[in-house]
Amino acid sequence: MKQLTNLGSEAGKHIILIIGAIVVILPFYLMLSFSFKSPAEIQSISGGFFGAQEMMIDRKCLKTESEGLMRSKEECSMLPIVYNYKAAFEEAPLLRYLLNGVIVTLSIFAIQVIIALPCAYALAKLNFWGRDVVFGLVIFCLLIPVHAIALPLYLMLAKFGLTNTFAALIIPWTISVFGIFLMRQFFKTVPDDLINAARMDGMSEFSIVWKVMLPTAIPALLAFAIFSVVAHWNDYYWPRIVITGDQDLMTPPLGLRMFKSDMDGNEYGPMMAAATVIVAPLVVAFLLAQRRFIEGITLTGMKSR
């Protein structure tokens, strides 16, 4: 009897978890599925996950010429999957967007680390007057939503003439309060003796941050890296505000707008293909770093020694 009720509650838990998983995964499933299918299949919601992959004709291709002749139907027929991904890369400079995304997210992360690590070290390990107040302010800043300060930020950047530059995409995010908080919590767990030993060895406080604290904090740093990179890779709101029109500065999410149906009906296939390409690096990075990421989050990656 007891075993039965146990089984029941276990099943209940799993059903709830499965429903949660479906809610999260379904959009990604659709994205991936649409990126494989032909427009007709997308519209009629048929063809299962992969679609039938019947040859289709690219209508845009028919309108172009090669060697003075209109292209034939044979020349322009292709698999829907090829059509979607080809269009994704041809219709907008997707590679340029991806490169921009890499430049922006990596610069943001690098500067965030350069600023957050010494701050976190000072807040965790140094005794100075007003430390608790400063830490209180850090916590307070965690509560301010980005959207609330977007307008003053924009005005400031505009005054300096920085809109429509990479700087506008990077500067507002260089000080990560979350990063400071996360690293401070981690540094708290680093034994004081280790720092004192470094001081006895003759290290300056800056060397301690970079040569002792940084290497011991790799798991936490990795967790922070994922948070930071995911947030800024996916950010649509801020690039939309400070980048107006210049294709060469657009980040991947901004680039997706290029696929919104313009003239000929829907471009769902290429759009979803582009979305897949944009999401893929993050998914791959997360899968590679998954274990360390979870270690970092639970802050158990380091033993006390």
Binding site: A197, A198, P215, T216, R305
Partner: peptide, 27 residues
């Protein structure tokens, strides 16, 4: 502390966990 030219051995040893023994001694 670094300029007093004293050396200290700690209860928890406080070795740099990310460095090898040789590197620890070299620091």
């Amino acid at each position: 502390a670094s300029n007093r030219d004293l050396a200290m051995v700690f209860q928890s040893y406080a070795l740099y966990p990310h460095l090898t023994v040789l590197q620890n001694l070299m620091v």
